[in-house]
Amino acid sequence: MIELHDVAYRYGGSALFAQVSLTLTPGSFHFLTGPSGAGKTTLLRLCYGDLQTSNGEVRLFDRPVQAMTRDEIAMMRRRVGVVHQDCAFIDHLSIAENIALPLTVAGRYDMLDNLTDLLGWVGLGRQANQLPSELSGGERQRAALARAVIMSPDVIIADEPTGNVDWEMSQRLLTLLIELNKMGKTIFIATHDLHLIRAAKSQVQARVLRLKSGQLVQAGADL
C-alpha cells in the first residue's frame, strides 16, 4: 500500500535520515516514535506525497511518487486520510463543511448523507455549525480525524493526533483509530506518547518503529 525503499531526505545540506525502508500493508497498524526533530513529520509527509525524497523510492498504491504528476498525487491523496497535529481548518467554514471538504473537493456529493453519522461517531453532532475557532483542542482533533476518514480512505496517517489533548480525550481518539483499523484501514501514527502506544498494543497488533539518528528501527520490548 505504502512502501519506502532506501529513502533519504536531506534538509539544509545535511541528511535528516537515510536508507529508510518501510512497508505498510493493508490493515496494518504502525506507530512511529522518536525524539523531536528526528524527522517523524517529514517521514509521514513522504508517505502521502507531500514531499519528494532526496534518494530512494516511495511507492503509493504500487506507483512510484516520483513518476506521478501533481494532479495524480492530489488524486492519490484522496485515498489517504491525514490528521495533522495543528489540525488546520478553513476558518470561515463551519465544522460540518470542513469535515465534508474532501467530499466536495472530490465531487462526491452522494456521500454527504454520511456526514451526520460521522459527526455523531466523533461526538461533534452539536458542534456541526460552529466555526473551528469555537472548538476545544480535543474537538478539533476529532474533527480532523472525521475529515480524514470521511472519504473512507485506505490509509490514515496521523501526526501526533493526541498532542494537544488530555488523557481521556487521547483514549477516545485512540478508540476511534482502533475502530477504523478493525474496519480494515491501515493506520500509521507518529507520536512520542508511550502511554498511548501501550494502550493501543493491548487492543490491536501494532508495530512500533523508532526514528533515531537518521535511521528507522523496530522499537524494543521496553514498549
Binding site: D50, R70, D71, A74, M75, M76, R77, R78, V82, H84, A88, F89, I90, D91, N98, L101, P102, V105, A106, R147, M151
Partner: peptide, 16 residues
Amino acid sequence: AQVISVLRLVGATDTY
C-alpha cells in the same frame, strides 16, 4: 495560504 494547504491536504488539484 492556510486555505490552500488544507485543500491540498484533502486532495484538491491545482486546477480546483
